[in-house]
C-alpha cells in the first residue's frame, strides 16, 4: 500500500514536496430546502479555503459555531466532497472514488460524542474493529490493539466494558480505534466538548503524545483556547474563510480580533492583556503560567 501512495504523491506533486493534506480553493455549498423540497437558498459553508499541512504537524482549527470548521474537517477524509476546488490527502484527490478507502485510512477521524463512536462490548474488541475491517491478519490486529491502547494510556482497561469507563477514557478508546488503523493523520472534531476537566486533560495529553512520539499529524478542532497553545499552527475560521492564521502566540496576540470572531484567549493570556492595557510592560501573546511569571518579573524590575 505504501508504495502506491508514494507513486500517487509523486504524480500530484507539482509544487515541490506535497504535504499530508493540501486544500486548494475549496468551496462547499449546500442547498437549503423547505419541507416540500423546494430550494430556499444556497449556503456557502466553506468559501475559498487553501491550506497545506505537513506530515507530523500539530494544527489547530478554531472558529465559532457555524464558521465552517467541521465542514472543512469532513472534507479531509472524504465524508464531504468539494463543490469547487480540490482536497488532496497524502497525494490523493478525495473526489477519486477509488481512493476513498485509502484516504479514510490515512486520515482517521474522532468526533465529539464518545458514546456514538464505540461499538465493541470490550475495549480491545472495539479498538480491533478498524484493522479487522481492513483485513489485517489476526496476529497483527492484536499487536496493533496493544500498541494503540498503550499510546493513549488505556492498556490496563483493555478487558473493560466501554460503558464502565469515564468520558475521557471512552474518548481515548475512540482515538486508539483510529490509530490502530495506522493513519498518517488524525482529525479530531471537538473531542473534549463533552468531557470534565480531568477527561479533557487526559485526551489532550494523549493527542500530544501521538504527535510528539508517533509523529502522527494532528488536526484538532476545538472551542477550548488553552488546548491550542501546543499547536504548531492555528487557523481561525469565520464565515467559511480563514480569518487568521499563525503560531498560537501570533494568533493569541490578537485578543480584540478573536473576541470579534466570537472566540476567546486562554485565561493567562487575557490576564496579561488586561494588565498591559492598564499600562504594565507585558508582552503580547503570553501563553503559559511560566511566561506570565517571567513577564511579571520584568514588570517588577521596571518599577523598582
Amino acid at each position: 500500500m505504501s508504495s502506491t501512495q508514494q507513486n500517487f504523491a509523486g504524480c500530484g506533486d507539482r509544487e515541490g514536496k506535497m504535504g499530508i493534506v493540501k486544500v486548494r480553493d475549496l468551496i462547499y455549498e449546500y442547498i437549503r430546502r423547505d419541507e416540500e423540497g423546494n430550494v430556499e437558498g444556497i449556503t456557502t459553508a466553506v468559501d475559498d479555503v487553501s491550506l497545506d499541512i505537513r506530515q507530523g504537524e500539530f494544527v489547530a482549527v478554531l472558529g465559532h459555531n457555524g464558521s465552517g470548521k467541521s465542514t472543512l474537517a469532513k472534507h479531509l477524509n472524504a465524508i464531504l466532497y468539494p463543490t469547487e476546488g480540490t482536497v488532496w490527502v497524502d497525494g490523493k484527490d478525495t473526489k477519486d472514488d477509488a481512493a476513498v478507502w485509502d484516504i479514510r485510512q490515512t486520515a482517521g477521524m474522532v468526533f465529539q460524542n464518545p458514546d456514538n463512536q464505540i461499538i465493541g462490548q470490550v475495549v480491545e474488541e472495539d479498538v480491533g474493529f478498524g484493522p479487522e475491517n481492513m483485513g489485517v491478519p489476526t496476529k497483527e490486529i492484536w499487536e496493533r490493539v496493544e500498541e494503540s491502547l498503550k499510546a493513549v494510556g488505556m492498556y490496563q482497561y483493555r478487558k473493560y466494558s466501554p460503558n464502565k469507563l469515564s468520558g475521557g477514557q471512552k474518548q481515548r478508546v475512540s482515538i486508539a480505534g483510529v490509530i490502530a488503523m495506522h493513519p498518517k493523520c488524525i482529525v479530531l472534531d471537538e473531542p473534549t466538548a463533552m468531557l470534565d476537566p480531568q477527561g479533557r486533560r487526559e485526551v489532550i495529553r494523549a493527542v500530544r503524545a501521538l504527535n510528539d512520539v508517533e509523529r502522527i499529524t494532528v488536526i484538532l478542532i476545538t472551542h477550548y483556547m488553552e488546548e491550542v497553545i501546543y499547536a504548531d499552527r492555528v487557523y481561525v475560521m469565520d464565515k467559511g474563510r480563514i480569518a487568521l492564521q499563525g503560531t498560537p502566540r501570533e494568533v493569541f496576540s490578537e485578543v480584540e480580533k478573536l473576541k470579534e470572531l466570537r472566540l476567546d484567549v486562554p485565561q493567562v493570556t487575557l490576564l496579561a492583556h488586561e494588565l498591559r492595557r492598564e499600562g504594565f510592560p507585558m508582552p503580547k501573546g503570553v501563553l503559559t503560567d511560566q511566561e506570565f511569571l517571567e513577564a511579571l518579573e520584568h514588570c517588577v524590575s521596571a518599577v523598582m
Binding site: P197, E226, Q267, L270, L271, E274, L293, L296
Partner: peptide, 28 residues
C-alpha cells in the same frame, strides 16, 4: 477529576515566588 480556574493557579504560583498577593482570586 476537577480543577480550580486557571487564574487561581497563576496567583498561587505568584505567591510561591514570594509575591505578596492573595491567592484567593478566582476570576480574571
Amino acid at each position: 477529576g476537577l480543577a480550580a480556574p486557571q487564574v487561581t493557579y497563576i496567583m498561587k504560583a505568584l505567591r510561591e515566588k514570594g509575591y505578596d498577593v492573595s491567592d484567593e482570586a478566582t476570576t480574571i
